[in-house]
Design a protein around this nucleic acid. Sequence first.
DNA 1: TATTGTTATACTCTATAACTATA
DNA 2: TATAGTTATAGAGTATAACAATA
Lengths: 150, 150
Amino acid sequence: MTFTDPAAPSADTAQQELISALVRASFATTAVLSRVAAEHDLSLTQLRVLAILRDRRVRLSDLADYLGLDKSTISGLVDRAEKRGLLQRAPNPADGRATDVFLTAEGMQLADLGEGKIARSLSPMTGKLTRAETIRLTALLEHVLKQKGP
Amino acid sequence: MTFTDPAAPSADTAQQELISALVRASFATTAVLSRVAAEHDLSLTQLRVLAILRDRRVRLSDLADYLGLDKSTISGLVDRAEKRGLLQRAPNPADGRATDVFLTAEGMQLADLGEGKIARSLSPMTGKLTRAETIRLTALLEHVLKQKGP
DNA sequence: TATTGTTATACTCTATAACTATA
DNA sequence: TATAGTTATAGAGTATAACAATA
């Protein structure tokens, strides 16, 4: 026989409150990222492209997978970034159908700059936590992000 | 005299890891929300409008403030949602310059439906936590979201 | 046949600038 | 003067469909 504490929120309520907080935190974070991007005349998507290419050379189809966007969208996205000198296309040496993309020196520099700006812009949010809380929140978020097993 | 444990990550590293997790969690959450929205032929922004108007009647300028968008953007957004029958405009009774917006019955129904779908769609992420972890993560996110004092 | 990428098309989202009406 | 909203304009982001080249 189990007894329920009437003052304790039900599992459903706790779940709802987590979802509410998660969604609001996502919008707040996205707003900061968008602002940083806009300061460099980038869209949020372009900023994500820079972040992805910062330590990878990938095919356009990989970029589409990472971003969850259609390949035709990627074509335009890469066109504009290439025209701006942030990245370059090159044929994939192993697959004649594929095209690789990678950052130029200018794109790399902008990606580095952006990383620092993002950290500073988010610090009003993340900097309020103690060191222990920071570590605990990170672990919980990583847990939430973990993919379901096979 | 203080001694630093060389195995412990520096404060900066802990901060960086939190920021990384927060950004990834935001993208993951946004992707889920966008997918739910798309299932109902809504953009993420339109979904947010429904969520905002679910328990409020507001002026267009309020909507612009909530979403952080220009008033001209709101005009178009509201136009399309109104044409679709999800919300209505009405003159603000107290201010002759202002226009209020509020959900129609159909818009309210869609907002209700969406809330349930969002909860179910996010549950693969949020449902992995124990009850105690759920409560702890919620509290930490709320702390991060708290506005700076005056 | 399937995959990779491009192009044409169409719509939404977004901001800037110029405007009207009201406060 | 300042605020609220609309409209015109322009550009980015996005998907669908049709296509060519390669696997």
